[in-house]
């Protein structure tokens, strides 16, 4: 075995030194919030498949104060995912040419955020319609 101990620069907290990378780490971490919510939803689907008693137990569990607080945190994470997803859309998407000119990034992000808000409200309206 080699006795060499080459110097390896530590990576601890490298991203904390630059606000750009702090934001990057926060927006990357939103995936964990989305995943956590989807797991809760997956449990709900499994419980729905098990019958009425199991489904009602799941609904009851969601009423606990801890669950509501967790969902407020998840909501913040999910909203930030939406915001950051569309903020980087001008970079991740091929350039949109309108009238021979490249569409400004702010216009693209702004339009996408309006579409996202409309999609959310449409979903709420649909749920409302099903409920009545």
């Amino acid at each position: 075995m080699s006795k060499r101990k080459p110097y390896v620069r530590s990576m601890d907290g490298w991203w904390k030194k630059n606000p750009y990378f702090v934001e990057y780490m926060i927006h990357e971490s939103t995936a964990l919030f989305v995943a956590a919510y989807v797991f809760i939803l997956l449990v709900g689907v499994v419980r729905l498949g098990q019958g009425e008693a199991a489904w009602n137990a799941w609904l009851e569990a969601l009423k606990s104060p801890l669950s509501v607080v967790c969902h407020l945190v998840l909501l913040a994470g999910a909203v930030y995912h939406t915001y950051s997803w569309f903020k980087i859309l001008p970079i991740t998407m091929p350039p949109v040419i309108v009238g021979g000119k490249k569409l400004a990034p702010e216009v693209l992000t702004g339009t996408a955020l309006v579409v996202a808000a409309a999609a959310g409200l449409a979903l709420l309206a649909l749920v409302w319609r099903i409920a009545l």
């Binding site: 989305v34 919510y37 989807v38 809760i40 939803l41 709900g44 729905l48 009425e52 489904w55 009602n56 609904l59 969601l62 009423k63 669950s67 509501v68 967790c70 969902h71 407020l72 998840l74 909501l75 999910a78 909203v79 995912h81 939406t82 997803w85 569309f86 579409v115 996202a116 999609a119 959310g120 409200l121 979903l123 709420l124 749920v127 409302w128 099903i130 409920a131 009545l132």
Partner: peptide, 29 residues
């Protein structure tokens, strides 16, 4: 998820458990 998850979190995790905004029994079996 960017389009729908925020509203879904609000509906299933906040509005329904607290009986807020949506009619009672919206997510009944």
């Amino acid at each position: 998820s960017a389009l729908f998850v925020p509203m879904m979190v609000f509906i299933t995790g906040i509005a329904i458990p607290l009986g807020f905004l949506l009619p009672a029994g919206t997510m009944s079996y």
